[in-house]
Design a protein around this nucleic acid. Structure first.
Length: 565
RNA sequence: CGGGGUGUAGCGCAGCCCGGCUAGCGCACCUGGUUUGGGACCAGGGGGUCGGGGGUUCGAAUCCCUCCACCCCGACCA
């Protein structure tokens, strides 16, 4: 490709809206342009990279037996109504205004299930893995970070159809392995985490994450290989257990203690023996939960425990109404109304506790959960903290931000039940198809690669994502026709063997060098008049910016050596 | 949806507080010339609904009202 006629609009200064490296570099190097908030156009160079990523995805999906589909973005709303997801999606789903009954698909479980219902009738028809690489539409409330969170984006989504739960396990594991291969081949350092299946109720879910301060998820990871989304992460902090002394329950005045910290400081108490009360409304039913000291309640765990997305902290007036006290004085003893009472596992059967007396300005001490009050159930409600021991090794956990690249999910029969997609087993009995769903954000792969591969000069592409293999720079071709001749010769010789970009523009050397470094093609062949006098050209490797003078006749061999082909 | 910010040429910005010649600067772009190994130089030139609408005023980029877009924080996130 001759650069003089190829559209690569590089920018010297990035538009001010770009806050993160990948966004800024994608704009500067002419890969993308923003059209509207969360909506991006891919320019030729960016599309080449995207195509490379999609080629890898296709290879790996095909390798596990995936069959490629192309499903429409325009969907009849009826199908979405049948699964209840019009309501569940809410504003996230785009609705077509001038054609009643059509929506833009944010994902394709419904449509896949629709086609499965049409034609998958027998256990003999399965297993199936169906996938597509297609544009999704989601009306994100706040698009951000360039292509990382957009209102329109390309997703590889795959769906497995199985007759048994064991079959689903096999399909799920295949995707797990395929995803690891895809991200590894793309040159991305990632980790997989157990994730919350939340109210979806699926039996297992795993996210593929890239550590990054630009990420929107939080994960707890350890060097021992433990990794989990903070929504489900645990640590092996031991329960506080019981103290020896069997002390009598005692009420005491705490007029100025509103928080756990106040209590600890004013009355010299052990933080872990303070039972913090949290009142939540779960599907309109109030519940009381006790947490250890200043432990933070994890709403995702709450949602999973009660299998609903509908949880919220109680309002101040609700607190008083249900407990008889205001925030800061709520406890397990003497509740005004009967509430279901839960406690975090760390407080299991504990005694010697301090908690509110359900009377403003008073607390109880020496509370014994097994003696003084009724705890209906203990469960894991807490959010793990940085430095806590990893549950598999005891090594300290790190809590990091991460970008979600992909998600694999055991759906079960949620959609096949809703849409009556059933099959007959070998005994002629009808069962719902058992499904899985598996997604990869294609632009995110690109952005994550960039986040992990750039320097102060610009992008640093490596095989196999690189848009071109070789960048030929002819320096001062107008003044030195010999440079032009050799550059043309090399270009014509190499262009049928490799993807070659030839900078034949009549630009100053500075511009050519800087643009080449910005675009980041792995190998630069720099042709200048001085070196040419000795039949030499420069061979520059972008990953380490190492430059070497080589004989013109060696160029092809050097390229083959670098790419190992 | 709540909070904060921005909107002036393709990009980056100044001017606005305190209204006043023809709206500026750098880069980019066009023409001619000179240059040529890390974003050249000289000369000339083109490009603007100052986000939109309304208002105040003799006069608005500037003050007021309103709408919109974009960015950041938060809420939300199948």
């Amino acid at each position: 490709m001759r650069q003089s006629g190829y559209f690569i609009p590089t920018l010297k200064e990035a538009p001010s809206e770009a806050q993160i490296a990948s966004h800024s570099l994608m704009l500067k190097s002419g890969l993308v342009r923003q059209l509207a908030s969360g909506v991006f156009s891919f320019l030729p160079l960016g599309l080449k990279v995207l195509n490379n990523i999609m080629a890898i995805i296709r290879e790996e999906m095909n390798a596990i037996g995936g069959q490629e589909f192309l499903l429409p973005a325009l969907n009849p709303i009826e199908i979405w109504e049948q699964t209840g997801r019009v309501e569940a999606m809410g504003d996230v789903m785009f609705h077509i205004k001038n054609r009643e009954g059509l929506v833009l698909a944010p994902t394709h479980e419904e449509i896949i299930t629709f086609h499965a219902k049409q034609h998958i009738k027998s256990y003999r028809d399965m297993p199936q893995i169906w996938y597509q690489i297609q544009t999704k539409f989601r009306n994100e409330p706040r698009p951000k970070s360039g292509v990382l969170r957009g209102r329109q984006f390309i997703m590889k989504d795959a769906y497995s159809l199985d007759t048994t739960w064991e079959g689903l396990d096999v399909s799920y594991d295949k995707h797990d392995e395929a995803y690891r291969r895809i991200f590894t081949r793309c040159g991305i350092k990632f980790f997989a985490v157990g994730a919350s299946s939340g109210a979806m109720g699926g039996s297992k879910s795993q996210e593929f994450m890239v550590e990054s301060n630009s990420g929107e998820d939080t994960c707890a990871i350890s060097d021992a290989g433990y990794a989990a989304n903070i929504e489900v992460a645990t640590s092996n902090i031991p329960p506080i257990g019981r103290i020896e002394a069997d002390l009598a329950l005692e009420k005491f005045a705490t007029p100025t203690a509103k928080t756990i910290d106040d209590l600890i400081n004013q009355y010299n108490l052990a933080e872990e023996r303070c039972a913090k009360s949290v009142v939540y409304i779960v599907d309109s039913e109030p519940i009381l939960i006790f947490m250890r000291g200043n432990d933070e309640l994890n709403e995702s765990k709450l949602q999973s425990k009660f299998k609903t997305n509908n949880v919220r902290p109680a309002l101040p007036e609700e607190l008083f109404h249900y407990t008889g006290a205001n925030h800061g004085s709520i406890g397990p003893i003497g509740l005004k109304t009967k509430l279901k009472v839960y406690a975090d596992n760390l407080l299991k059967d504990a005694n010697g506790l301090v908690s509110g007396a359900n009377e403003d300005g008073f607390h109880y001490k020496n509370i014994d959960f097994t003696r003084d009050c009724q705890i209906d159930e203990y469960a894991d409600f807490r959010t793990v903290q940085e430095g806590e021991p990893c549950p598999i090794s005891g090594l300290p956990l790190r809590v990091v931000r991460a970008i979600e690249l992909g998600h694999i999910f055991k759906l079960g029969t949620k959609y096949s039940d809703a849409l009556s997609a059933t099959f007959l087993d070998s005994e002629g009995k009808e069962h719902p198809i058992i499904m899985g769903s598996y997604g990869i954000g294609v632009e995110r792969v690109m952005a994550c690669y960039i986040e992990q591969h750039y320097d102060e000069k610009g992008l640093v592409w490596t095989k196999p994502l690189n848009p071109f293999d070789i960048h030929i720079l002819g320096l001062n071709e107008v003044k030195f026709p010999a440079v032009k001749d050799i550059a043309e010769q090399l270009y014509n010789n190499l262009k049928n063997k490799f993807e070659v970009l030839y900078d034949d523009r009549n630009e100053s050397v500075g511009i050519k060098f800087n643009d080449a470094d910005l675009i980041g093609i792995p190998i630069q062949i720099i042709i200048g008049n001085k070196n040419l006098e000795n039949n030499k050209v420069e061979f520059k490797i972008r990953t380490n910016n190492h430059r070497e003078l080589i004989d013109i006749t060696e160029v092809e061999a050097k390229i083959r050596e670098y790419y190992n082909i």
